[in-house]
Design a protein around this nucleic acid. Structure first.
Length: 805
RNA sequence: GCCAGGGUGGUGGAAUCGGUAGACACGAAGGACUUAAAAUCCUUUGACGCUGAAAACGUCGUGCGGGUUCGAGUCCCGCCCCUGGUACCA
């Protein structure tokens, strides 16, 4: 009988489901292994061949770990709140809840036909009230701790999505989701104080086994800089300008000060400003500009505040004050001291406005003839009175200490990270469990009243006015205050998509718990996630938010680990055969269903692993899957061949090496080389036949990749339980090296031939072997050096004969 | 601009504590089987040279140019190109 995937695959998928073959156990002596995929957003388009790359990878590892005796938790769920579903619902006039249910069903079927069977009891769905009850519960804890607050400040607003966005959701001035230029708009918002955790989010990165680039991106996003805040007094006024700088050592070279257009101080200085109309026009212009156009504009602009001066505290010089949009309103104090001699941007601005450039740092402690560009390197102070000739790094501290005594400066630290804009003016999200009471103000709902269910309505179009569509549902909005029973209105904003995904990994551990978010004992057993696999696109969104919430939960003693995800591996994206990203609009999406129908799930899985290095981006090539299928045919036929009864040293050695190779490669995500070594072995075995024991070994080694076929063979052999309940082949560590090695003969470093010699040979033996070889022996002779090297890692030795030229 | 990763056959890729470059697979060419085709199996497949042909042999070859070494895809110096991230953060 031939290998026919259609006949066996469904059978085993049902079998695994029925027998809960891949379900983790809550209480056991076994060591746990928690392996997690970034759960998918169940979109209407379904899965393409890119998605399963990560899911099959975790499945390979999970299955091997299970066979190695671990209690493996490998769950799956649905991140289902959010805009794509809502937009689709509006367009097609179907309720998002219906669409979500349908999409999840479709996704599940797609995963199942790939042999991706998960524990159904642990499935979660962020839109399920039993789930989002706890998302809301976490929000209440954040509120009670003062980590959630209301603010009315200019924020990023996407005019297409008609909602406010977090800073993390803006890419180059465009909305991360729909690529519409983002506007600045003043809307009442809920904000989470992620900045309170900035230091911990930064420091704890060190303990994580994550890809360096991802850690670096988070570090840069948090953007900690240590420096000083310096006060510049304004003459004839009680006002002063606070500036933040990391270069207090250059203070003597500060020749002007610049305020951001958003800086409140400009309004306060209005009576003194002689050119107010000009200043007002400039600031209004800058404030209304989209972030995109502010980034695009290359040349520096600005307006001098006529009639206003600032006093440089180190030398009491009166220097001019400008407003310019190259200074950001929401970073540090929104004002800078400018040292054109030592800052490229200030240099450019000073040239344009013809401002003095004073050199205060010099590499040689001597002034340059003429400054052609800003000098931003280290050096010695000059033109800086008593600080002259001091190294600039040292001078930083000295100058601030000196000014601190006069109460004119202090050491400060600033972060790039801003608080998390958390509310969305959209329907399809978790309602925020807060009421606005006429008497009591903001009042959180009682925990026992959770979940606060999203009202089921027929109209959920975004209003675009800054209000959520929920605001129009008066019988839901009007409620009573949980505190005083008086009249109150519900908060109508909803949570962003990131809310549900910021803690889902915890709920898999205890999905049905009605009393608590998670049981403490279970949490201690299963956390942290040992291995987290997903795309790099979440480097500073999901991964930062989840770490933040986890730390809050840690402080609340709900979780016991400082970090949620111990090890992170990024899956490389799969491009369409044309080398472009797969997208519906380009029409280059490859759907796995048809491939599975044609070649079978096992071939598909095998090719997902074989296609190339897991972490790298690769183009999909449908022809490649043919090779996977051919291999499975050959594999099946090999097992059908008669058992070998005599000994075969070569096969015995190779199969032992194969166990080591496959095991290590799966653990290191080198699925491509694990599979190629299996192919190599099968090619070899075809000429030699295998005995029963060897057949058993290779079926087990292939089982994580081709579970259906291997389960079929396994149970055909009369085993009554799943192959995944059997044990992974044992490696014979003593016998990994053969009795023979290859001697590579080089002349002056160039390979001229190779011989087989005994593994224990020394140089003398090797030379003797060469001497016996008629062709190679001619190179041996006097007046030469011979280098003999044995490489411990490979079964080779090198004999390099160096001839004098 | 800055940060990170990467450039290896016709293609995907393998080999990086320096040691046979091109494993494995796709594609291609030839052959066997077949009335034929598909499937399967076998052989060949980096470029060039030498040769009637083959074996054998030689030269070159891992983005480019140098260097270290008996020996470099791998290490060092200087460039080029591609991909991702980031963008006036004071």
């Amino acid at each position: 009988m031939d290998y026919e995937p259609k006949k066996i695959e469904q059978k085993w998928q049902k079998y695994w489901q029925k027998n809960n073959t891949f379900a983790a156990i809550d209480q056991t002596e076994k060591e746990k292994f928690y392996i997690l995929d970034m759960f998918p957003y169940p979109s209407g388009a379904g899965l393409h061949v890119g998605h399963p790359r990560g899911y099959t990878a975790t499945d390979f590892i999970a299955k091997m770990m299970q066979m190695k005796g671990k209690n493996v938790l490998h769950p799956m769920g649905w991140d289902a709140f959010g805009l794509p579903t809502e937009n689709y619902a509006i367009k097609n006039k179907v309720h998002p809840e219906k669409i979500t249910t349908k999409n999840i069903k479709h996704f599940k079927e797609q995963l199942e036909i790939m042999g991706l069977v998960y524990d159904p009891d642990r499935e979660i769905n962020t839109t399920d009230p039993n789930y989002y009850k706890w998302t809301q519960w976490i929000f209440l804890q954040l509120f009670k701790k003062g980590l959630a607050y209301e603010a009315e400040a200019p924020i990023n607003f996407c005019p297409s999505c008609k909602t406010g966005l977090a800073n993390e959701e803006v890419e180059n001035g465009l909305c991360e989701r729909c690529h519409t230029p983002v506007e600045r708009k003043k809307i009442r918002q809920w904000v989470l104080k992620i900045t309170a955790y900035a230091d911990r989010l930064l420091e704890d990165l060190d303990q994580l086994d994550w890809p360096q680039p991802i850690k670096e991106m988070q570090r840069n996003w948090i953007g900690k800089s240590e420096g000083a805040t310096i006060k510049f007094q304004i003459p004839n006024s009680k006002l002063q300008i606070d500036v933040f700088t990391t270069r207090p050592d250059t203070l003597f070279g500060c020749t002007y000060v610049v305020l951001a257009p958003e800086n409140e101080l400009i309004n306060n200085l209005k009576p003194q400003i002689k050119n107010w109309p000009e200043v007002e026009e400039y600031t209004n212009d800058a404030k209304n500009k989209s972030e995109l156009s502010r980034i695009e504009q290359k040349e520096k602009t600005g307006v001098k505040l006529e009639g206003v001066k600032a006093i440089n505290p180190v030398n009491n010089e009166k220097i001019p004050v400008f407003v310019a949009d190259y200074v950001l309103g929401d970073y540090a104090t929104g004002a800078i001291m400018c040292v054109p001699a030592h800052d490229e941007r200030d240099f450019e601005f000073a040239k344009k406005f013809d401002l003095p450039i004073i050199e205060v740092i010099s590499k040689t402690a001597k002034p340059q003839q003429k400054m052609e560009e800003a000098y931003a390197e280290n050096g010695y102070l000059i033109n800086s009175n008593e600080f002259n000739e001091i190294k600039n790094e040292k001078a930083k501290k000295k100058i601030i200490k000196w000014l601190k005594e006069k109460n004119l400066a202090d050491f400060t630290t600033t972060y790039k990270l801003r608080d998390w804009i958390f509310s969305r003016q959209r329907y399809w999200g978790e309602p925020i469990p807060i009421v606005h009471c006429e008497k009591c103000g903001l009042v959180p709902l009682n925990e026992k009243d959770l979940p606060l269910k999203l009202p089921h309505v027929n109209h959920y179009e975004p209003t675009g006015t800054g209000e959520s569509p929920l605001a129009g549902i008066s019988d839901w909005v009007n409620t009573t205050c949980p505190k005083c029973d008086g009249k109150a209105k519900r908060e109508t904003n909803t949570m962003p998509q990131w809310a549900g995904s910021s803690w889902y990994y915890l709920r898999y551990i205890d999905p049905k718990n009605k009393q608590k978010l998670i049981d403490g004992k279970k949490e201690k057993y299963f956390m942290p996630v040992n291995l987290y696999v997903g795309g790099a696109e979440h480097a500073v969104l999901h991964l930062l938010y989840a770490r933040f919430w986890h730390k809050v939960l840690y402080d609340l003693k709900i979780v016991s680990t400082l970090e949620p995800f111990q090890k992170l591996v990024n899956v490389g994206i799969i491009l369409a055969p044309d080398g472009k990203k797969m997208s519906k609009s380009l029409g280059n999406v490859i759907n796995p269903d048809a491939l599975i129908k044609k070649y079978g799930a096992d071939s598909f899985r095998l090719y997902e692993g074989f296609i190339g290095p897991f972490r790298e981006r690769l183009s999909w090539d449908e022809k490649g899957i043919v090779g996977a299928r051919r291999f499975l045919d050959r594999f099946y036929n090999l097992l059908k061949k008669e058992d070998r009864h005599e000994n075969n040293k070569k096969i015995e050695l190779k199969i032992n090496q194969l166990i080591e190779k496959v095991e290590n490669d799966i653990a290191d995500f080198n699925f491509n080389t694990a599979i190629s070594s299996l192919m190599e072995f099968v090619n070899l075995a075809q000429k030699n036949n295998l005995n029963k024991k060897e057949k058993e070994i290779i079926v087990k080694l292939l089982a994580p990749f081709a579970p259906h076929l291997c389960e079929e063979i396994w149970q055909e052999w009369g085993n009554k339980t799943s192959i995944f309940q059997s044990y992974w082949p044992k490696l014979d560590k003593e016998n990994l090296r053969g009795a023979e090695i290859t001697l590579i003969v080089q002349i002056n470093g160039k390979t001229r031939g190779s011989l087989k010699i005994d593994a224990n040979s020394d140089q003398k033996n090797a030379e003797n072997a060469v001497e016996k070889d008629t062709r190679l022996s001619q190179h041996l002779g006097n007046n030469q050096k011979i280098i003999f090297v044995k490489t411990p890692q490979k079964p080779i030795a090198i004999l390099n004969i160096i001839k004098k030229v």
